[in-house]
């Protein structure tokens, strides 16, 4: 299996890894479809967990171990938790949420298909001739990822971090309310609810972080 895979890469002699890759891909696609079609808000967030986890497994199968764990850490561990936090703040009901339907299904479908087509085209065009040797040295180890990131892709990396910094500063500016004299600009009473406290404290810490 090792020799044939290395000498003659192709779709016609699928190995176990390739079959697993396709199966996981189908499961991920199914979870993603459920995410956007389910009528229960929190279920959508939970299906998103499955879809993102499936993506992490795909990265793992492509030997990009570091990226896979970071995917779980950032998306499942933080982004979805943030989503769920937001949903819980709105007291997301159990069962269907008919009032959460914006009736833009067709537009959303169009945008989704266009975005997917663009991404698939770009990825296929860029990596058509790239083959990963699954049996050799892992090409996605943290050392390899780090070296390529900080040797060849430093500029995009830094540009991205500046973008994130700008977003952070923007979030602080938008969420600040005490720009005027104290007492005049506060719409909510002084004894804020506990649920409001983390939101009010987060920007202050974000400032330190930046």
């Amino acid at each position: 299996m090792n020799v044939s895979a290395a000498a003659h890469p192709g779709f016609l002699s699928p190995t176990g890894v390739e079959i697993t890759f396709v199966l996981i891909g189908l499961a991920t696609l199914g979870a993603a479809l459920l995410t956007v079609t389910t009528r229960q808000l929190v279920h959508a967030a939970l299906w998103l967990v499955v879809a993102l986890g499936g993506l992490a497994v795909e990265y793992l199968l492509l030997t990009a171990e570091f990226i896979a764990w970071v995917q779980v850490l950032i998306y499942v561990g933080s982004v979805v938790v943030l989503l769920l936090f937001g949903l819980m703040l709105t007291k997301a009901p159990i069962g269907r949420s008919p009032d959460a339907d914006s009736e833009n299904r067709l537009v959303a479908l169009g945008v989704g298909v266009a975005a997917a087509a663009a991404l698939v085209w770009v990825v296929v065009d860029a990596f058509r001739t790239t083959w990963i040797n699954l049996h050799g040295v892992a090409q996605g180890s943290s050392r390899a990822t780090g070296e390529s990131l900080f040797r060849h892709w430093v500029l995009p990396f830094e540009a991205l971090s500046v973008l994130l910094l700008a977003a952070l500063v923007g979030a602080i500016v938008l969420s600040r309310r005490d720009t005027g004299s104290p007492g005049s600009a506060a719409p909510s009473p002084a004894g804020a609810t506990p649920a409001a406290t983390p939101a009010a404290d987060a920007p202050a810490a974000g400032k330190e972080h930046s």
């Binding site: 939970l46 171990e65 570091f66 764990w69 850490l73 499942v76 769920l84 943290s142």
Partner: peptide, 21 residues
């Protein structure tokens, strides 16, 4: 695991989803 530290932190974060659910 090559990136064991990230793995550990990532998976521990998933556990909290149980409490949220």
């Amino acid at each position: 695991v090559d990136a064991g530290l990230i793995f550990v932190l990532a998976v521990m974060g998933v556990g909290v989803l149980g409490s949220l659910m």
